[in-house]
């Protein structure tokens, strides 16, 4: 394995609990400076995978290197190069935001300026407030601040924006873009597919402990999955046609129907649509049965 190019290298990773394989042969790399989004439904093995990379869990088999080190043997010097934002935090929070960040900054050889980090997560006005008195979204921003204060080479973000309002998410994205421009490598898990699309360079989709797709964000699912479709209503039924030439289909429709088609839409599948397609149709219950049939027929 080379270690200069990749900050994370995972080969055939397995984690079993008794007969249950939580992670069942996953392989991927994260390049230096890249943001890699790990996506998948709850229970798919994302958290197990990320916790193995962070050193919190031991793997059953397979090869893992994080910054060139086996996480099961990672020491304090190795931890000093990582930033970890865990999925949830319920700490009692009896210190202020500034005290918490100063305490964590002191652990790292070359930390960021505490005031700058507080400003970057938008908590300047809360710097002197006890963490337990903050709202859930504000506490989450403290978690993110603690994760980046050590100037990590590799940042783990496990569902970082859960509980954020849309405005806070936008400013969080801006913060992540700043980190990206400084060369930080990031492993992101999220339930918000738009977030993955906004921030990620590449994505891996895990379902049932296996990597079902692994590609640059705009190629996930393959070219076919991105084929736009035209949807309209005709005689009370919804029709849908997938096509590389939606304009031609619309023109033809207008000609055939002799006017404006009812309920006309031209839809380019979002990452979310492609994702739902990949992880299985039980998650895609919002598509009507008929539309689904026509989609299938169009393939």
């Amino acid at each position: 394995m080379t270690t200069t190019e990749n900050v994370v290298e995972v080969r055939d990773l397995r984690k079993t609990y008794g007969d249950l394989a939580a992670v069942d042969g996953v392989s991927f790399d994260i390049h230096r400076g890249e943001t890699f989004a790990l996506l998948g439904p709850n229970g798919a093995g994302k958290s197990t995978t990320i916790e193995i990379l962070e050193g919190y869990r031991d793997r059953t088999s397979g090869e893992v290197r994080v910054l060139g080190v086996d996480p099961q043997k990672g020491g304090l010097d190795w931890k000093a190069r990582l930033g970890i934002v865990l999925q949830s935090s319920g700490e009692s929070g009896n210190v202020t935001v500034a005290e918490q960040l100063r305490a964590f900054a002191a652990l790292y050889p070359n930390p960021r300026d505490v005031d700058e980090v507080i400003a970057a997560v938008g908590l300047e006005s809360k710097a002197g407030v006890l963490i337990r008195k903050l709202s859930g979204g504000q506490r989450r921003r403290v978690d993110v601040a603690v994760g980046i204060v050590g100037r990590p080479e590799l940042l783990f973000l496990d569902e970082p924006t859960t509980g954020f309002d849309p405005e806070a998410r936008r400013s969080f994205w801006q913060l992540i873009r700043t980190l990206q421009s400084e060369g930080t490598s990031i492993l992101l898990t999220t339930h918000y597919l738009d977030e993955a699309a906004q921030l990620g360079d590449r994505a891996g989709i895990i379902a049932g402990g296996r990597m079902v797709d692994l590609a640059p964000i705009d190629e996930i699912g393959g070219a076919d999955a991105r084929v736009p479709f035209v949807r309209w209503r005709e005689n009370g039924a919804v029709h849908e046609r997938r096509t590389h030439a939606p304009a031609a289909v619309v023109t033809e429709l207008v000609a055939r129907l002799g006017g404006e088609p009812e309920g006309l839409e031209v839809i380019r599948p979002s990452l979310e649509d492609v994702y739902l397609d990949l992880v299985g149709h039980e998650h895609a219950s919002d598509l009507s049965g008929e539309a689904l049939n026509e989609t299938e027929a169009a393939r």
Binding site: K79, S88, L107
Partner: peptide, 12 residues
């Protein structure tokens, strides 16, 4: 409550 888990991931 996760305090120790956070510390475990830090170089403390």
């Amino acid at each position: 409550d996760g305090t120790l888990k956070r510390l475990a991931g830090s170089p403390l």
